[in-house]
C-alpha cells in the first residue's frame, strides 16, 4: 500500500520560537517532509530537520533522502549540523540548492560548520553525501517525485519549488516578498513622467501576471506569510510577504489550499490565530473557494 504524505517539521521563519506561548503552532524553523513510500524529500533544513532526523534513527527501512534548500539563510540550514543521519555511514543524502555548480552548494552548506562557528566540519559526516549539479532545464526527479524550481523575490538567489506527487502539485515557497515591485512603482508614481507611467503600468501588469503564474496550478501552496500589515510597513524590503498579499494572490491564482508559513517568531499562537481568522474573512468576502490553513508543526497532509 502506498504511503504518501507531507509533514511539517518546522514552520517558523527567521529564528526558533521555543516559547510556551508559541508551541501550539510550533517553534522550529523551516522544514517540510514529503514522502512517497520510501522516497523522502525534505524542503529546507531548519531546526525542524533535527526531530525529523531523530525519528529517522528509530527506523531501518529508509537510508536515502534528498534535502532541497530554498537558500542558505541560517533559519533554512541550521538543522544540518545536528542532523544525526549525516553522521551514520550507511545513509545516502543528496543535497540541492541555489548555486552555479555542485561545488557551490557544498561550499555554502559547509561554511556554517567551520571553526570558530561550529566544533566539527562536514568532513566528519560519515553518510555518503552527494551535492547535486543544477540541471539545465531546472527540473529533476526524486523517485516518483518530480521537482522544478524558480527564482523568487528574496535576498540573494532563492528558489521556490514546484513538486508533483501523484496527481497533486505542491508549491513550497518559504521566502518570497510578494508584490514588491508593484508597491515600489506605486510609491514613485507621482514623480514619474506620463511616458514612464505608461511603461511602468505595463510592467506592473506583467509582474502581477508573473506572480500569478508562480502560484497557478497549485493544489497545495506553502507560502511565506510572515508579517501583519503593520509590521510589513516597518520591514518592507526584508524579503517576506504580508499575509494579506499572500492570501489575495492565492485567491487570484485559484490555488486549492494555502498553508500560511514562515511565521514570524514574534507572533504567539493567539496572534497567528487572528491572522488566520483574517485570512478566512478575506476569502469569504471575496467569495473564494480557497481553503486556508496555518502551517503547524507536526501537521500531516495525506497525499493519496
Amino acid at each position: 500500500m502506498s504511503k504518501s504524505y507531507l509533514r511539517f517539521w518546522g514552520v517558523r521563519g527567521s529564528y526558533t520560537a521555543p516559547f510556551q506561548t508559541h508551541l501550539s503552532v510550533g517553534g522550529n524553523t523551516s522544514c517540510v517532509e514529503i514522502r512517497v513510500d520510501d522516497h523522502i524529500l525534505l524542503c529546507d533544513a531548519g531546526t525542524g530537520l533535527i526531530p525529523f532526523g531523530n525519528e529517522m534513527m528509530q527506523q531501518k527501512q529508509v537510508r536515502n533522502l534528498l534535502i532541497m534548500l530554498t537558500h542558505y539563510h541560517w533559519d533554512h540550514i541550521c538543522g544540518l549540523p545536528f542532523f544525526l543521519p549525516a553522521f551514520i555511514p550507511d545513509w545516502h543524502i543528496s543535497i540541492f540548492g541555489p548555486g552555479q555548480s555542485s561545488k557551490d552548494i557544498e561550499e555554502y552548506v559547509s561554511a556554517q560548520m567551520r571553526a570558530p562557528y561550529f566544533p566539527v566540519g562536514t568532513e566528519t559526516w560519515l553518510a555518503k553525501i552527494k551535492y547535486l549539479s543544477p540541471p539545465q532545464n531546472h527540473n529533476f526527479n526524486h523517485g516518483p517525485i518530480a521537482v522544478s524550481y524558480q527564482n523568487v523575490h528574496h535576498p540573494g538567489t532563492t528558489y521556490g519549488y514546484r513538486i508533483n506527487v501523484h496527481d497533486k502539485t505542491i508549491l513550497y515557497i518559504s521566502d518570497n516578498e510578494c508584490l514588491y515591485l508593484e508597491k515600489s512603482i506605486n510609491q514613485q508614481y507621482a514623480e514619474m513622467s506620463i511616458e514612464e507611467r505608461e511603461l511602468y503600468d505595463n510592467l506592473k501588469t506583467e509582474e502581477y501576471e508573473s506572480e500569478l503564474n508562480l502560484f497557478r496550478g497549485a493544489d497545495i501552496l506553502i507560502h511565506d506569510a510572515q508579517y501583519t500589515p503593520q509590521d510589513y510597513q516597518a520591514k518592507r524590503g526584508w524579503g517576506h510577504s504580508c499575509y494579506i498579499d499572500t492570501v489575495n494572490l492565492a485567491i487570484d491564482a485559484e490555488v486549492g489550499e494555502l498553508y500560511l508559513y514562515h511565521h514570524d517568531p514574534n507572533y504567539d499562537d493567539q496572534q497567528l490565530e487572528i491572522i488566520h481568522q483574517h485570512c478566512e474573512q478575506i476569502i469569504r468576502e471575496r467569495h473564494s473557494t480557497l481553503i486556508c490553513h496555518l502551517a503547524r508543526e507536526g501537521a500531516i497532509i495525506d497525499l493519496g
Binding site: 523575490h153 528574496h154 535576498p155 540573494g156 514588491y180 515591485l181 515600489s184 509582474e207 524590503g237 524579503g239
Partner: peptide, 11 residues
C-alpha cells in the same frame, strides 16, 4: 533589479 536588497548589492 526590483530586488532592492543589501545581500544582492554585496554579491
Amino acid at each position: 533589479s526590483s530586488k532592492d536588497y543589501a545581500q544582492d548589492r554585496t554579491v
